[in-house]
Amino acid sequence: MEKIPILRMGPFLLVTIQVDLYDRLAENLESDLVQMVSKTGAQGVLIDISAVSIIDSFMGRIIGNIASMSKIMDAETVVVGMQPAVAITLIELGLPLKGVHCALNVERGMELLRSRIALTDGTPDDDADTE
């Protein structure tokens, strides 16, 4: 069975969605990801959707769910690389993905995650010091 791979990168989990998701696949991703967050104690989840050409309300809900579930497990979610046409469509559809943070690309997403984790922990960000 097809599966979306979840990569571990230090304190973060990275998911790159390369195919158009059908429902079962999306639902599996949701549960896999939450499992992984719990197992690895990840502090952040990056979802790269730069290859996704369609997000309908179902997919939008899955993304929102992942963000909310991760949040209560103390991990931040950042969605990166949304295509302009997808963003415009989501807004018109009435789905602004409230509570989900977005970034332009994976690199910016990482920065955002680091700054948010530093913010919630109240501890100084190690990476920021070395920069």
Binding site: I91, E92, P96, C102, L104, R108
Partner: peptide, 12 residues
């Protein structure tokens, strides 16, 4: 407001 929301979805 729509334009602002769409911009935010892009991460800006």
């Amino acid at each position: 407001i729509k334009t602002v929301s769409a911009t935010r979805l892009m991460g800006a």
